[in-house]
Design a protein around this nucleic acid. Sequence first.
DNA 1: AGCATTATCTGACTTTAGTCAGATAATGCG
DNA 2: CGCATTATCTGACTAAAGTCAGATAATGCT
Lengths: 290, 290
Amino acid sequence: MLDPVSRVRRFNRAVTSAVGALDTSFLGRGRPLGAARVLNAIGHGRSDVAEIRDYLALDSGLMSRLLRSLEDEGLIETTAHADDARRRVAKLTREGRREFAAYEALSNAQAESFLAQHSQADALLAAMDLIASALTRERVALNEMDPQSEEARYCLGEYYAELGRRFKQGFDVSLSRDPDARDMRRPRGTFMVAISDTLPIGCVGLKGTDYGYAEIKRLWVAPAARGLRLGRRLMDAAEDAARGLGITLLRLDTNSALPEAGQLYRTTGWREIPRFNDDPYPDLFFEKQL
Amino acid sequence: MLDPVSRVRRFNRAVTSAVGALDTSFLGRGRPLGAARVLNAIGHGRSDVAEIRDYLALDSGLMSRLLRSLEDEGLIETTAHADDARRRVAKLTREGRREFAAYEALSNAQAESFLAQHSQADALLAAMDLIASALTRERVALNEMDPQSEEARYCLGEYYAELGRRFKQGFDVSLSRDPDARDMRRPRGTFMVAISDTLPIGCVGLKGTDYGYAEIKRLWVAPAARGLRLGRRLMDAAEDAARGLGITLLRLDTNSALPEAGQLYRTTGWREIPRFNDDPYPDLFFEKQL
DNA sequence: AGCATTATCTGACTTTAGTCAGATAATGCG
DNA sequence: CGCATTATCTGACTAAAGTCAGATAATGCT
């Protein structure tokens, strides 16, 4: 009744029936679920037929027929791939875009009505983020992105907000040594964002310097994604990128108010060194030889 | 990307594919999903054919055929209902119980492996409870139960633990006037447990006294179920039960460290009165004329 | 008793999903 | 160039799910 396994199974049952209702909504537009799923995959930017087939785990014969039926409806057009005429590329027609928008509106309305029904939406959303992150853990992509991209800026904003909450004295970016975006772009450095199904849930910056080492900056993992060893994955990726750039020495600074960060560094080959900058926030300094 | 609707939709996607995997596990025993679902419904105690059909939303023709195929496999037996020979009642045979147990083992193993894969299981379970409660809110049953039943004792244990956390001085049941279970059984009183799909998520006691009034005791709502107005439902049910028992005056005591409780009482027709007992914990006393 | 209602069953469908063995055409590579 | 490989398509299936119009028998109600 109250053991963890029962609780997981209760969640499964609750969600299965809710998701069932969600699926049937996709049937509200007079189209079989398979065709609707393909249309939506195309609408969400997947154009390569093989990619869609792979994503939706469809047999090639079935896929071909579904594409044909969407073509007959006038919702998509397929053309040969520019580089490889065996492959086909699908895109929405004007009418297909309209139909896709209708599905999007349906999904949005469903999500909105769910939110409207529940007063404690914040707690609910946090719980949903946590579960979604856990379920998609193995599908988290680490993408190199511009430090001024929308995704990167979102992560940094969350990062600063968290520092503000966790430092006794708060956190003001302008007092800190905010790294120049140019130092976190190739060839001087890089910036990586962990994306879980479109949602940014973590980041790390590699900042080039002129002093014979590079710095790790802005390591952040969304609260909903903690415990999934994402911090370690981000650090590994940053170190790999550094090696690729010919960097042999890394440094970073952190604060003892972030014990999980210090713990991560200590267990992954970093050693504590004396202060190497005059930033007012950090009180711990590390170095790692690659 | 980060708006609430996107977050809900991300959760839906994550859970849909996870649930898909769950469904296919039901196919591992050489039986179509429909038949497996019916077998499991019967195994979980649903015996009335009409009830199962309703629960699984099956057409009567389809249902009939699924029952036949399970009968042919020797997993179930159907008999006419004792009171109404038109209705049929299905129950598992010995072999059916064995097969059902195999499905149960599969589900448990799946839940266990999910838990094993995730280090922060406590946070994950709390999030799952919250979501499951929200999704099944309209299906929460208020059952009259013995105050010494397993479900009731679970609720009371959680209730005491929460008082311990929220009272500055902690909470020790033995110092409080722990109501005698007999006073919370008919005809003197009653005890109700809110059950969401097998999980107790709230309770309330109605305690009879010899002083011309009854008391409301042990009103508790699980953290995962707050915000769903369950406290109000429990109170309404307790008041209804009191009316049914011919009780016309209710009293209760509470503590100002539980502001949401005081708020609930004040907005539902209770008025504050002077202390009417010598229990060391409460500092607020209410009364309501029915 | 007579008649409408109800629960289930049966037969005759259709639709959707999925499988599999080739066919066709483009590409990569020695 | 020739041949293996690859991506897609077509035809010929099967299985599962679902629909619908009666048939059958028990029940409720007057």
